[in-house]
Nucleic acid binder design. Structure first.
Lengths: 258, 258
DNA sequence: AAATTATTCCGTAAAATTTACGAATTGTGA
DNA sequence: TCACAATTCGTAAATTTTACGGAATAATTT
């Protein structure tokens, strides 16, 4: 959706193709260089940042819509994607920016009763990706993107800071029940890398020796016979996730600490 | 909504008062006589059971809608109520029963394009109540209610068995992170009572001696100087939840086993 | 070639928590 | 007063978590 014609069609007749009153917002977590970051888009003209999102096609299964929206935005086909909350306690979210402003800034030929200005619930999904593999695409409404550190998220449009907070809280809780990392790390990784990932997500220090012991004891990772050169230091061994054990743990859930 | 006139109005013009395409379904867990049960309503004419539910008013905050719907149905004002999932992967859920059948069974004067037959996402909430305190109200569409044991839920209308399963799974996971019981037990309860509640929810045995030690160590309950007469046996002491510690644990979350 | 430096990684002991279970206590009816 | 069934107390064993000393290692510098 990038030409003016496509946008006009979407704005005027989108409610025929998509379900009105419901949207999907995605909090996309990326990890790279020992940083946990979130992908934000800058809305053209509004001078503000917001979460990538989209609408659900009228005959499209919900989870499929979420995957489609992520795919369109990041190019990633197969990623960890999970619903975490529905936001709908602020009935007139979009009105924070008036329809007038919106219509003017984007040069749209529509009225205040357009479907986009109606009450909308946001279904929040969060995704975990390796952000070096992502190719972000902006669209008509957005002109820039940026990976923001989770501790430095700016005030977002449409009350979306609450959504980011909730996503982060869900991720932190979930890490105690489910393995995380498969979608955030390269296929082969070192102990220091995954250790740092967990520390970053949980926001606290973990003893590296005990941490790796734990992951091995749970059977979630396997040591390889290769090492990674990291400059003037001892080369750490590479590890891989044990696919079966990982999947099993995802399904069953595990109760433990790190 | 019980008179024919009210129903006609709701069916014909409900989409003006309520948001179309979205509904709330509630899985109401009740506990009594050492049984964990779920409240189901029988749909008049359709010969089937379903979850209590309702729609969101156009200007009503989502969580308020969920509380209102529960209140209308059970008479309870203040209860534990929590969103757990949005269901929307089966785009044409209601079509399992055809519009024709629906229209005929309820004697409605509407077309197949009525808003009630459009694609609808269900936002699932679950509630915890003491079911001896509940006064259930049926409405025009339903003619009976019953508290069903969680292990014996019949096939439900509209694919709602999946929702019940998910609610139960969420409850079982949550019990490892948050205290549960305040809304399911009377104000004063005995160790055997709360012990049995936890066993019922988790579906497995817990050593009673260790269980009560744990709750006391966490500071969640306080022993009272009263006892409950339970027939020809030693009278157990009564306990109360420590409100502050309980609230704190609810907010912060706890990581532990029982 | 040896020394230096920063980092990985192995192993063990102490502390804390969880699990297991024996036995005393108690309220009521026979 | 005895028997019974259920509650409650207490302690020891097993397991898990936490803490941390010190060896190994890969370049780079001397």
């Amino acid at each position: 959706m990038n030409t003016q014609r496509e946008v006009d069609e979407f704005v005027k007749n989108g409610h025929r193709e998509y379900l009105p009153h419901v949207s999907i917002d995605s909090v996309i977590f990326g990890y790279h260089d020992q940083q946990l970051r979130i992908l934000l888009l800058r809305w053209r003209g509004l001078e503000g940042w917001g979460l990538p999102g989209g609408f659900i096609r009228r005959r499209e299964p919900l989870s499929q819509a979420a995957h489609r929206i992520l795919q369109e935005r990041t190019g990633l086909e197969d990623l960890f994607l999970q619903q975490f909350h529905v936001f709908g306690d602020t009935p007139y979210r979009v009105r924070e920016r008036s329809p007038e402003e919106f219509i003017e800034k984007y040069g749209l030929d529509i009225g205040h009763d357009n479907w986009l200005f109606e009450r909308t619930l946001s279904i929040g999904y969060f995704a975990l990706v390796d952000y070096s593999k992502v190719t972000v695409r902006t669209d008509f409404f957005t002109d820039a993107y940026q990976w923001w550190e989770v501790g430095e998220i700016p005030p977002l449009l449409f009350d979306q800071n609450e959504e980011v907070e909730k996503a982060l809280a869900t991720l932190r809780l979930q890490i105690y029940h489910q393995p995380i990392g498969y979608n955030l790390l390269p296929e082969k990784f070192t102990i220091p890398e995954i250790h740092s990932l967990y520390e970053t997500i949980l926001g606290k220090e973990l003893d590296q020796r005990n941490f790796s012991k734990k992951l091995l004891a749970l059977g979630l990772i396997r040591k390889l016979d290769e090492r990674r050169a990291i400059g003037p230091h001892r080369s750490p061994y590479l590890y891989q996730f044990e696919k079966e054990a990982y999947e099993e743990a995802l399904k069953q859930g595990i109760v433990h600490t790190y």
